[in-house]
Simulated assay, not measured.
Amino acid sequence: MGRKRMEEQWWRGELAADIHRTLRMKELNLPLYKAHSPQIGMRRYFIDLLTILSSRCNLCPTARHLAVYLLDLFMDRYDITVKQLYVTSFACLLLASKFEEKEDKVPKLEHLNNLAYMCNVNVVLSKKDLLRMEMLLLENFNWNLCIPTAAHYIDYYLYASVGENDLHNGWPITSLTKVKAFMEKYAYYFLDFSVQDHSFLHFRPSLIAAASVCASRICMQISPAWTAQLELLTCYSWEHLAQCIEMMLIYYENDIKEASNIKKEVTMQHQQQEVMENLRHEATTQVLLQQSSYHPLVQRSASLFQFQSPVQDLCSAYRDSLQAHRPSTLLAGSADSSLHSYVALQASLQPSAQTLHVQMPVAMQVALGTEPSHCISVAYGSSYFSSCCSHPAGCFDG
């Protein structure tokens, strides 16, 4: 069930009623809690610290609740410095574990110091300081640690928490085992609530345990909320439990609201992250797919004209040179040969320049050869270098 149980389950034995009666008599002699501690504002912190330490040490619930109760009573009587409060908390945990657990379950000093370091507690415990504090605590409680807490009663009440005649949402219960398992979780949930607020110390421990069972039945929608069998077992009627149950249910509703708010905040954060990722993806896509400012068709004409002009000038100069140096005694064949050479040169040069306006593949080759090649941005993985720069790759690189 996720918690340590006592090996001897007295609530199932023949002496259960007698043990319960003895515990009820002892709680009548418990000292009155006045809530006069000057460090009462730090109580919640030290209660959480004891809860964490007892959980790490695998202590039973009765040891944890006894340690909390010893700390509450001691703080209520004395003005203790913050540093001494740490030593007092560890000493209360040790005494409670020695009283409720077997010897092999009692935490060792080295283990406690390691846990204190993990909990960011800037206190190194020594054996001498712990022994001195343990002696002071035992003297303060007259060497009597047989102090009943709500955890001492809860299992006895849970044993009869659900009956065969109970209804769940108006229907008969089909599986008592499953319902009792959920009932136990709810009851310990409310029991842990009771140690977080010192206001519950004004109630008797047995009443807190009974109210935890009744509040669990209400939350699980088990009717009736309080049965005659439970009233006979606990010696508490609905009127006795009403105030304590109301406080527990208020804490329960606040806890649900807080959990719901945390869930909404987490959901909103995830949604904002998704929106930012989508916007970032869209911006990246626009950068990669935006229309290039380079217009090859517009720049190609200027390039071709620049290329065609030198060719025409070369042809004209060659023709003029032939006409200027041609002798009058040239044979007709020589003249024809020279003219043939000129015609051949003009035919070999001019068509290339003239067809550049018509033949698109040739024009594209000339344009790409004379102009700087534009590149496509290539993104490696899902990010860009420096978040804005892309790695260039050649358009037609092999």
Score class of each variant (00 low, 15 high):
residue 367 A to P: 00
residue 139 E to T: 09
residue 103 E to M: 11
residue 261 N to I: 11
residue 32 L to S: 13
residue 35 A to L: 07
residue 112 L to R: 09
residue 240 H to I: 04
residue 169 N to M: 14
residue 96 A to C: 11
residue 64 R to H: 08
residue 1 M to N: 08
residue 236 Y to W: 09
residue 365 Q to S: 10
residue 313 D to I: 15
residue 114 N to C: 09
residue 278 N to R: 15
residue 59 L to Y: 05
residue 156 Y to C: 02
residue 382 S to Y: 05
residue 6 M to A: 12
residue 244 C to H: 04
residue 359 Q to S: 08
residue 111 H to C: 02
residue 177 T to F: 04
residue 230 L to Q: 02
residue 128 K to C: 04
residue 176 L to D: 00
residue 219 C to Y: 05
residue 382 S to L: 10
residue 2 G to V: 15
residue 121 V to M: 15
residue 376 I to F: 08
residue 291 Q to P: 13
residue 79 D to A: 15
residue 308 Q to P: 01
residue 189 Y to L: 08
residue 116 A to V: 06
residue 14 E to I: 12
residue 91 A to D: 01
residue 291 Q to G: 05
residue 240 H to A: 12
residue 191 L to Y: 06
residue 176 L to N: 05
residue 356 L to C: 10
residue 84 Q to H: 13
residue 151 A to N: 03
residue 79 D to W: 11
residue 252 Y to K: 02
residue 167 L to N: 10
residue 82 V to Q: 13
residue 300 R to V: 05
residue 233 L to D: 01
residue 129 D to Y: 02
residue 174 T to D: 07
residue 309 S to H: 11
residue 242 A to D: 11
residue 3 R to P: 00
residue 227 T to G: 00
residue 40 I to M: 14
residue 41 G to P: 05
residue 397 D to H: 10
residue 96 A to S: 15
residue 364 M to K: 13
residue 81 T to I: 11
residue 5 R to D: 05
residue 87 V to T: 15
residue 9 Q to H: 08
residue 348 S to H: 09
residue 187 A to I: 01
